[in-house]
């Protein structure tokens, strides 16, 4: 290990608590350039919090987060302007795809994709539109450029969201359960887009319960439970021969055919995932 000096993402000793609940209890994670890391684990294991800490949508309490060589101090009380600027810089390098898409409902598909390039990167509009059209074509939605999100299916929304993330030309894309709020028949189109992205060498950190995707695409599985990384390794090894009891019972649940591995473990979360959380967009 080179201690993350050259890694797009390097996390060490990361701690995060929400009130009395300690969600992350010291996480170390280095992601190499071009690597696809899939984070799995039961509900409440801290997977989502971990990737939200990588781009500071959650403020870590302690530890170190480094993205593309940029490091922002964690846990301090001081919130300087320089720190805020560094965090924004990190966010442009580590793009995020959300479980509930979070497309901007008042902008067209193309408008969503070019928003970052135009208003954050200062790209001229014509150039951004060319980029946006290219990216929409890449996710198979060239013909939807002028549609508003309310007119798109869930799978289409998520693909636009992926195009929006790519428009920042990021070093790494973070996926937070990108298929969990989709109907089962819509998973594949999103996963296919992600497969193609991985095939092009994009560095990806993916929180998902999609075993098939993890087996085919991941270079490494990171299995989390209770706020720690219990085990990690290549998918062939992890799925064939999980070392840890919690990993074995988790995989048994997954093997039962449910893509929501934590469906039984956490009914509330399950219901939540199926509700159209962004109701206004519907």
């Amino acid at each position: 290990m080179d201690h993350g000096a050259d890694c797009p993402v390097s996390v060490a000793g990361l701690h995060k608590r929400f009130g009395a609940l300690e969600v992350l209890k010291g996480i170390d994670l280095d992601v190499q350039r071009g690597e696809v890391v899939v984070i799995m684990g039961p509900s409440g294991s801290g997977k989502t919090t971990l990737i939200r800490c990588i781009n500071f949508l959650e403020e870590p309490d302690a530890g170190r987060v480094r993205v593309c060589g940029m490091e922002v101090p964690c846990g301090g009380k001081t919130k300087t302007r320089a720190r805020a600027r560094h965090i924004r810089e990190i966010r442009t390098r580590a793009a995020m795809v959300f479980q509930h898409f979070n497309l901007f409902p008042h902008m067209t598909a193309l408008g969503n994709v070019i928003e970052g390039p135009v208003s954050v990167r200062g790209m001229p509009k014509a150039q951004a539109e060319a980029l946006g059209e290219r990216l929409l074509a890449r996710v198979g939605l060239a013909d939807k450029r002028d549609e508003y999100p309310s007119r798109l299916s869930g799978g289409q929304k998520q693909r636009v969201a992926i195009a929006r993330a790519l428009a920042m030309e990021p070093e790494v894309v973070l996926f937070d359960e990108p298929t969990s709020s989709l109907d089962p028949e819509l998973h594949e189109e999103v996963l296919q887009t992600m497969r193609e992205l991985a095939g092009e060498g994009m560095t990806m950190v993916v929180v998902t319960h999609e075993v098939g995707f993890a087996q085919d695409v991941a270079d490494r599985i990171v299995f989390m439970a209770g706020g720690v990384v219990l085990e990690e390794g290549p998918p062939a090894e992890f799925f064939a021969n999980p070392k840890h009891d919690r990993a074995r019972s988790f995989l048994r649940l997954v093997a039962r055919g449910s893509t929501y591995a934590d469906a039984g473990a956490n009914g509330a979360a399950r219901t939540d995932a199926l509700l159209p959380a962004d109701g206004r967009q519907e």
């Binding site: 966010r91 793009a95 497309l103 970052g116 208003s119 920042m168």
Partner: peptide
């Protein structure tokens, strides 16, 4: 929606 703010922030907007 809170997710709208997060999406904006995740693009690096102040």
């Amino acid at each position: 929606d809170k997710g709208q703010w997060e999406a904006a922030y995740s693009l690096g907007m102040p």
